[in-house]
């Protein structure tokens, strides 16, 4: 690990000040400390933001939910409002990492997580994300766990977060605070596809802080849930996953929010699946037909072709779980 200076921000102004001067924010630290030990991350200054007032979960005026950036994964998952309004978020969180890590890691840090691509984590390997211009060892390497959607010739690494898949499905907004003031960015615009600059991962400005994630109000009743498919039953990243939320009224699907994880360079929203569902009556054949559109545009690599079919089946099964089997 490279040496770094350490400072703890007593308030938001102090944090922004340190951030503007190049300080790196640390909250739970479960990704950052790990990557610092691998020398993938080499911050000169760490700014501890754990005392900042961003620990609330609040119902918004419009009936949505705002989760503070410093709420831990375990707190968010257990929160009664999260559990009752958006079970898909609770489930995604509780299927992530381990109880210990969820006690440490925060919501803001969770969406800032960096990829688990082994070549990214190995400083001796070529990686455009870690070392722009060095190449991508995964393209012709062992790429079984890599992305099939949103990839580029520069990078095929997946985004590792489960909660982010639920946030993407629900069209959450990221609340940001900089020295110029507050702004909001839609989740779809917050996490960036790699393109030719895989080293740029978020639409963050220098020194900006994530203050929270807001999930918009959706019509009630809303049924939702998260399915994660992986190599072992627990404590493992997703091969594929599906976040599904459905609003059914009068026997007809009025709203459908669907996104997939483990397959995209960013959490992968599935608008074609959603369009196929809205206005239809739940049925076995509907789930199958809608899920058939889940892998549209997929570009599998040598070792991850299985993800194309697995993704469709994952989405189909979770549509059935949430929407019912009649």
């Amino acid at each position: 690990m490279h040496p770094f200076s350490f400072t703890k921000a007593a308030n938001t102004r102090e944090a922004l000040d340190a951030g503007r001067h190049g300080g790196r924010y640390i909250a739970g630290g479960t990704t950052l400390v790990d990557l610092m030990r691998e020398t993938v991350e080499r911050p000169e200054t760490l700014v501890d933001i754990s005392d900042l007032p961003m620990r609330d979960v609040k119902v918004t005026e419009r009936g949505g939910l705002r989760i503070g950036a410093l709420v831990t994964m375990s707190e968010a998952a257990a929160h009664p409002k999260v559990r009752s309004l958006y079970p898909v978020i609770s489930q995604a969180l509780e299927l992530s990492a381990s109880a210990q890590l969820r006690n440490m890691a925060t919501i803001g840090g969770n969406i800032m997580q960096r990829t688990r691509c082994t070549y990214f984590r190995d400083v001796t390997a070529d990686c455009n994300k870690r070392e722009p211009g060095s190449g991508c060892a995964a393209l012709e390497g062992f790429n079984r766990t890599h992305a099939i959607l949103g990839t580029s010739d520069a990078c095929v690494a997946t985004h590792p977060s489960d909660a982010a898949v639920a946030f993407a499905a629900l069209e959450a907004r990221v609340h940001l605070l900089g020295s110029d003031g507050e702004r909001q960015v839609s989740f779809a615009d917050f996490l960036l596809r790699p393109g030719r600059t895989p080293n740029r991962e978020q639409a963050l400005r220098r020194g900006e802080l994530i203050t929270g994630v807001e999930i918009p109000a959706l019509p009630r009743p809303l049924k939702s849930g998260y399915l994660k498919v992986r190599d072992r039953q627990s404590y493992e990243f997703a091969l594929t996953s599906a976040a599904v939320a459905l609003h059914v009224r009068g026997g007809v699907i009025r709203e459908a929010k669907v996104a997939a994880g483990g397959v995209g360079t960013v959490p992968w929203k599935l608008p074609a699946v959603e369009r196929h569902l809205v206005g239809e009556r739940p049925s076995e054949s509907l789930w199958t037909a809608a899920a058939a559109k889940a892998a549209e545009g997929a570009r599998p690599l040598q070792h991850n072709r299985f993800k194309v079919e697995l993704l469709k089946r994952t989405v189909e099964r979770q549509l059935r779980v949430v929407g019912g089997s009649k």
Binding site: F6, K8, Q100, M104
Partner: peptide, 29 residues
Amino acid sequence: CNAGACGACTVLVDGQRVNSCLTLAVRLE
């Protein structure tokens, strides 16, 4: 593992179980 992947380092900090290998000591004032 020294990387938060095995749990052998688990301790309680302020009553909560955490991975001590991923916890920086300077943050524990």
